[in-house]
């Protein structure tokens, strides 16, 4: 599974993208966040406040309860600030 990070999530994790293989018990976006947060201090900092993290599963916006299913790509980013 490919994980993408944008803005301060990219800065804190130190990577723009990475390939991960979560264990079978990680079945939702929320569980994936908890699992990724254990990858290191940077990841823990990135996911310290999940309320500030938005997610997209295969480029569709989704919430923490969304099942991962057969997702190939999950993106994490802060609330957007364009315009």
């Amino acid at each position: 599974m490919q994980i993408l990070y944008f803005a301060w999530l990219r800065q804190r994790t130190g990577v723009a993208e990475e390939t991960v293989s979560p264990p079978p018990e990680v079945t939702t976006i929320g569980a994936l966040i908890a699992w990724l947060a254990q990858r290191g201090p940077g990841h823990a900092a990135a996911f310290a406040d999940p309320a500030q993290v938005r997610a997209a599963l295969d480029q569709e916006m989704c919430g923490p309860d969304t099942p991962l299913g057969a997702a190939r790509e999950v993106a994490f980013f802060p609330p957007v600030t364009g315009g």
């Binding site: 944008f6 803005a7 301060w8 980013f77 957007v80 600030t81 364009g82 315009g83």
Partner: peptide
């Protein structure tokens, strides 16, 4: 268009 761009388009300002 501006209201939705600001809240729905994937941009982040530093």
């Amino acid at each position: 268009l501006m209201d939705w761009l600001k809240t729905k388009a994937p941009f982040w300002k530093r």
